[in-house]
Design a protein around this nucleic acid. Structure first.
Lengths: 221, 221
DNA sequence: GCATGTGAATGGATTCACAGCT
DNA sequence: AGCTGTGAATCCATTCACATGC
């Protein structure tokens, strides 16, 4: 079934949206360089992708290209910004003000272009009242509900040890958060309507280890 | 083509090895609980997976199960540890001693069960000589080659801003590092024999944003 | 002519369903 | 009977190839 503009948006895979993010970044760069127009082939070369895939990805949301010419850089960029829903600022909170939480709070990509970290939450009273280097405050865990309501927070970021992750997720869901980025290495039991995306740092290291082992064993040239 | 034990290891996808890591974690837990045996159905329930997939994943490396019974928890765990190549310690260095580098250096999953962070490297002289809270030292960038040689480092972790990532990758490759975990949001131009795995934190947030937008627009219930 | 947009073909990964072992 | 291991079937993503339009 051919996918037409604006229909069937839920059928779009995460693989596709991930690539849209990558294209967006590239277009932002090209725009800053003053480039007016770009073809799917040109984009395909920059990443190691197939040009047809790029065209298909972009065609999901309408026809933005001009045959014989390519895509208008600025227009396509604006379109992707809108498609990804980052044409307005989304507020997020981080749960866990340990090393990882602190690092994420000050991570440039989390505090620009559509995202804003409102605060970190922690149960450790010795941490509350302090701020990250960039000035993101650490707030008592009990204030979760209030914070979410007052700041229209719709993203929660879990940066606590694995054993507390499920509890934090449930509390975030209760507070009204609709999307969660989970850094704890556990499988979260989902609530209806509260999306989770997990980033498992350890798995990536183990994957490299697997590769190294194969190199050492001579399985790979 | 049916895959048989120990043959064709390079043909195993990252999706599979990622799941192996997840199984391993589960088995470690089950072993600590004293459970002796586990079936593919039981594992399938814990994560939201299909039991046939689990059996297929495990069968890539040999026949570890017993028909009518299931898998021996301890034996399978040891097998996965060996398969993933974490039955010995791999040394890693982190390039970039900013917020992210510091957080990763002290991240529990990076300093246990097969991995050891030797040091962080940074060009900023005001950072060198210091250590993370857990005591991982920050060392001058110029000492890269020496450090890699002396400590048999085979994993490099890139935690520098995007504009320096390619340069860092090339330097790591020159120094003899064989596998790189990249946190910079850029497409790395690969060198032969030096594997990269990229973790793009920003893309994950944008993916959640896309989901939120669709919820708001009523595309999803 | 040139590059998009898209059906058709391919290639992989997942799931089904059952033969085979304990 | 129960559960693994696996060919066959299905599903999904990627790539090809070309009709379409600038």
């Amino acid at each position: 079934m051919g996918r037409t503009a604006n229909s069937d948006r839920e059928g779009i895979s995460e693989l596709t949206t991930g690539r849209l993010s990558v294209y967006l970044r590239c277009l932002t760069f090209l725009e800053s360089q003053g480039q007016k127009t770009v073809s799917s082939h040109e984009l395909a070369e920059k990443f190691h992708l197939n040009s047809a895939q790029i065209r298909k990805d972009l065609a999901c949301f309408g026809e933005f290209g001009t045959r014989g010419v390519g895509y208008d850089v600025s227009r396509l960029r604006r379109q992707l910004v809108e498609t990804l829903g980052i044409d307005r600022v989304r507020n997020a909170i981080i749960v866990g003000a340990g090393n990882l939480g602190m690092a994420l709070a000050d991570y440039a990509g989390f505090n620009s272009n559509g995202f804003h970290i409102v605060a970190m939450l922690d149960t450790d009273a010795s941490k509350t009242g302090k701020t990250s280097r960039q000035g993101i405050p650490v707030v008592a865990w009990e204030r979760l509900g209030e914070l979410v309501r007052r700041n229209r927070v719709d993203i929660g970021i879990i940066a606590v040890p694995g054993e507390h992750a499920q509890h934090v997720y449930d509390a975030l869901a209760d507070a009204g958060v609709l999307a969660v980025l989970n850094f704890a290495p556990v499988q979260i039991r989902l609530r209806h309507g509260v999306k989770v995306k997990s980033v498992d740092l350890r798995i990536n290291l183990e994957s490299l280890s697997f590769h190294l082992k194969n190199v050492e064993d001579g399985v790979i040239a």
